[in-house]
């Protein structure tokens, strides 16, 4: 993952004193908690009592339980579908903002930022009022006479989870992509066209590789955040659309909680996510080399 790193990042490859605060922050707030969680995943629990030790029992439980496996597969499926919706749309939106709307693109960017500030829960509830049984979509379709009965797959379903997650994550994915697009000049695209590349080829050999840092971040945002989310499935998902995040969060609170098992689940999820991320990045690299 080095070929298209930003030049600025390349220059700072040597460790530098000014990086120390960032490094300290990273260690205290990310590396240490993660390490604790990792150690915890090999312990066992008896009620609320944590028993230190080293057992692979938690991991074994995860891989042998049909419920956990099904949840894991569904989670990855939802994350993939969401990302497959979010990243291409965010890419197209960023492209339009950069090359079609130009200066008005900045205005759109501010709207995007504003929508992020409106809050996570508020936005999920907003989707509920759109997708609900008596929601905006159903009543509009009924009023238009397209349907007679409300469509019931719109809410409390995998569909609702994917749509809501996509709506939540789209603005977040636009930010890194738009900022990557700012490094691409109109003449870069024109040079490719001039040398004989059609539009699709320009996308594959110039736009995508040059926007790669943004694509990577947008992909990570939408893939990891949708795989880790448990609020959206519990608010708009049905009984059949719980995700692994819901089970993990259950392991950390209330009766029946089991921290070591939750920690192990979290690590399995992290490992699977990381592997998927690497595979997809490899795939994109393969598509953009010719």
């Amino acid at each position: 993952m080095s070929s298209s790193a930003a030049p600025a990042a390349r220059e700072q490859s040597r460790p530098h004193a000014s990086m120390l605060p960032a490094a300290a922050f990273y260690i205290v707030f990310f590396a240490l908690p993660t390490l604790c969680l990792f150690v915890l995943s090999f312990w066992t629990a008896d009620g609320f009592q944590l028993i230190p030790g080293f057992t692979l029992g938690n991991y074994e439980k995860i891989f042998t339980s049909p419920l956990y496996r099904a949840l894991m597969i569904r989670t990855i499926g939802v994350a993939f579908v969401t990302t497959a919706i979010v990243v291409p749309i965010a890419f197209a939106v960023s492209f339009l903002m950069r090359f079609v709307f130009e200066r008005r693109g900045q205005f759109i960017l501010q709207m995007v930022l504003l929508s992020l500030f409106s809050g996570y829960l508020v936005r999920i509830y907003a989707w509920r009022t759109i997708l609900g049984k008596q929601g905006l979509l159903n009543s509009t379709l009924q009023w238009l006479g397209v349907i007679r009965e409300p469509l019931d797959f719109l809410i409390y379903s995998n569909f609702a989870v994917v749509v809501t997650l996509s709506g939540l994550l789209l603005p977040l994915a636009v930010l890194p992509l738009y900022s990557a697009m700012l490094n691409i000049g109109r003449d870069d695209i024109e040079a490719a066209r001039d040398l004989g590349a059609g539009r699709l080829h320009v996308l594959r050999t110039v736009l995508l590789p040059m926007a790669m840092p943004g694509v990577r971040t947008a992909f990570a945002f939408s893939f990891l955040l949708s795989a880790g989310d448990f609020v959206t499935p519990s608010l708009v998902g049905g009984a059949q659309s719980l995700l692994i995040g819901n089970i993990i969060s259950d392991q950390f609170r209330g009766i029946g909680s089991n921290w070591p098992l939750g920690a192990a689940m979290a690590f399995v999820v992290i490992a699977v996510m990381l592997a998927s991320y690497l595979i997809v990045m490899r795939l994109i690299r393969w598509v953009t080399t010719w």
């Binding site: 024109e190 040398l195 050999t205 590789p209």
Partner: peptide
């Protein structure tokens, strides 16, 4: 004809070399 089909090529003011 679109630019990619024309038998012309262009040298741009700031080069526009593909950085990647």
């Amino acid at each position: 004809q679109p630019p990619e089909r024309r038998p012309t090529n262009m040298v741009f003011q700031r080069g526009a070399l593909f950085p990647h």
